[in-house]
Design a protein around this nucleic acid. Structure first.
Length: 434
DNA sequence: ATCCGGTTGTA
DNA sequence: ACAACCGGA
């Protein structure tokens, strides 16, 4: 039996190869009620499951319920002699897999991971986990990763009863993701290093959703990049894949950092109460994209409309919540996870902690993003803002980023950035000296 | 020990 | 230029 989780593909799949070596394979997915409130990405999950089921002519068995009940039940129904999985390294997945293994009377066999390098496998000179990206990345490259695994012939066991996958308007499949990947390699990799920071340009690989659900394995992408090893652009994209692996590694070593400050250096930090009458409307304006800062609002509206936000803008909008509105990062991390199709607890929540200054790579605390400067720099023609903020479409060029009288119905800035920057710096100073 | 590096902003 | 951090080699 192969129990699929975040590995919803048939190619380059070590656990599938291991299962197929045992004989005919029962392909299973369990819709876990504990993850049913996972926001937008439940739709993305259903889209991935539909394409996976199609790829095996409908053999996929979908059950709904607690995996610790459903998986043992399927084993006894089918007489499976082992349950094969790809390892899961996030806190919930690790707890769930322990419960399932304990409830089974056949082995739960874990083969492979969703990463090129398994979380926990790279340690520093003192045999400790890395706490900064650049050092981790160097060691990660040095360790290296295996080539993609060859396709295997699988005989699927059919006609095991299951439930239907819910309908969804989304369409996601490994084939479409790889098609996008090859288009990206052909058309956009040659400008990646700079265009990746440009939300107005379609310059990123857009592989985040495919990686989240395992439609493709990062090893597949890294193998293609390895064939372009002399390209600085390929190396830069390798770095971005490494950020994903680094944060998975950090979460593996520090499961609590999913929702708590990784470092306690700012334990005494004073935050605004998001439920208070003064702050609640500001947080709501942030969520809805009407802060009066065009690049922030464009990003928050892109998130609502598309379930995706450009990474540069994720940093800008996160910095605004944390440093201009002084709200503790988990509120923002929760909001992103609710709306992002690619929402991943390790990358998302540690990215937020990076911005907040409580995580790895402790950015010097005085590094506060200026939303206007960031807009001018990374959306230089203003095209990104005009795409998502219709109220500003009558303003041409970079002037969309500037405050002024011509902005019509568009809101006035809800805070004075220069003032809030100083407040943030004072609070960081105070927290550091406690 | 000492130096490097870092998704930055303001003067 | 400077702010003025800190893990890692």
């Amino acid at each position: 039996m192969l129990w699929f989780r975040r590995d919803l593909r048939l190619d380059d799949h070590p656990a599938l190869a291991a299962a197929a070596a045992d004989g005919p394979v029962v392909p299973v997915f369990v819709l876990d009620p504990a993850l049913a409130d996972a926001g937008a990405r439940v739709d993305a999950l259903h889209a991935c499951l539909r394409s996976l089921s199609d790829a095996m002519d409908g053999a996929l068995v979908v059950r709904s319920g607690d995996p610790a009940v459903e998986i043992p039940r399927l084993v006894s129904e089918t007489g499976a002699t082992a349950v094969h999985v790809t390892g899961d390294f996030a806190p919930y997945g690790r707890r769930r897999d322990k419960r399932v293994a304990a409830a089974l009377d056949v082995p739960l066999v874990s083969t492979g991971t969703p990463y090129a390098v398994p979380p926990g496998a790279v340690l520093n000179g003192k045999d400790q986990p890395y706490q900064v990206f650049s050092a981790y990345c160097r060691a990660w490259r040095e360790r290296g990763w295996p080539s993609p695994v060859d396709a295997v012939d699988v005989s699927w066991v059919r006609d095991v009863a299951g439930v239907d996958v819910p309908e969804t308007p989304l369409s996601l499949s490994p084939e479409a993701a790889l098609e996008r990947w090859h288009e990206f390699l052909d058309d956009s990799l040659s400008a990646y290093s700079s265009d990746r920071d440009r939300p107005d340009v379609d310059g990123t690989s857009r592989m985040s959703i495919a990686l989240k659900f395992g439609l493709v394995h990062p090893r597949t992408l890294l193998a293609d990049l390895g064939r372009r090893a002399r390209s600085d652009h390929a190396r830069k994209l390798g770095d971005e894949l490494c950020w994903r692996e680094f944060y998975a590694d950090v979460l593996f070593h520090h499961p609590r950092s999913a929702w708590h400050d990784l470092r306690d250096a700012l334990a005494g930090m004073e935050y605004a109460d998001p439920a208070s009458p003064e702050v609640a409307p500001l947080v709501e304006a942030w969520r809805e994209g009407r802060t009066g800062f065009p690049i922030v609002d464009a990003g928050m509206r892109q998130l609502r409309e598309e379930g995706w936000m450009h990474n540069r803008v994720r940093m800008i909008t996160a910095s605004f919540l944390v440093k201009d509105l002084h709200v503790w990062w988990p509120l923002g991390a929760r909001h992103f996870l609710d709306l992002l199709y690619d929402g991943d607890i390790a990358s998302n929540n540690h990215g937020w902690q990076w911005v907040a200054g409580t995580g790895t790579d402790a950015a010097p605390y005085f590094r506060v993003f200026n939303p206007t400067t960031q807009g001018r720099k990374f959306d230089p023609q203003g095209d990104y803002v005009r795409r998502y903020v219709p109220e500003l479409r009558h303003i041409s060029g970079a002037a969309v980023h500037e405050p002024g009288d011509q902005r019509g119905d568009y809101p006035e800035p809800i805070v004075d950035h220069a003032v809030e920057r100083r407040v943030a710096l004072e609070r960081y100073q105070a927290a550091r000296s406690t």
